[in-house]
């Protein structure tokens, strides 16, 4: 099991991606992540917030926050299941 001190924060910029969309970038980052890591996902696709929530629920990871800003949507996900 990974030590909390080794946990990394990764920024994933998926702005402009509509197909296949930001969820692809999140899932790719998840493959490379380890328990305790935090992934910050940036996107512009309006479908991103419900997708991130649905994905986190099914993969048993935690959505720390989802915020819609003027120029982008920012989701922060903590990896609990890896």
């Amino acid at each position: 099991m990974a030590n909390e001190a080794d946990a990394q924060k990764t920024l994933v910029d998926a702005r402009g991606s509509s197909c296949p969309g930001p969820i692809t970038d999140l899932a790719m980052a998840y493959r490379r992540a380890k328990k305790g890591d935090v992934i910050e996902l940036w996107g512009t696709d309006p479908g991103m917030p419900p997708d991130v929530k649905a994905w986190a629920e099914k993969t048993h990871n935690e959505v720390v926050s989802i915020e819609t800003q003027a120029d982008k949507i920012v989701a922060v996900v903590r990896i609990l299941n890896r």
Binding site: S18, C19, P20, G21, I23, T24, A27, G47, D51, A54, W55, K58
Partner: peptide
């Protein structure tokens, strides 16, 4: 599929 639905883009 690794996505929350069969095709990643909702409209399709």
């Amino acid at each position: 599929t690794p996505y929350p639905r069969a095709y990643p883009a909702e409209a399709m």
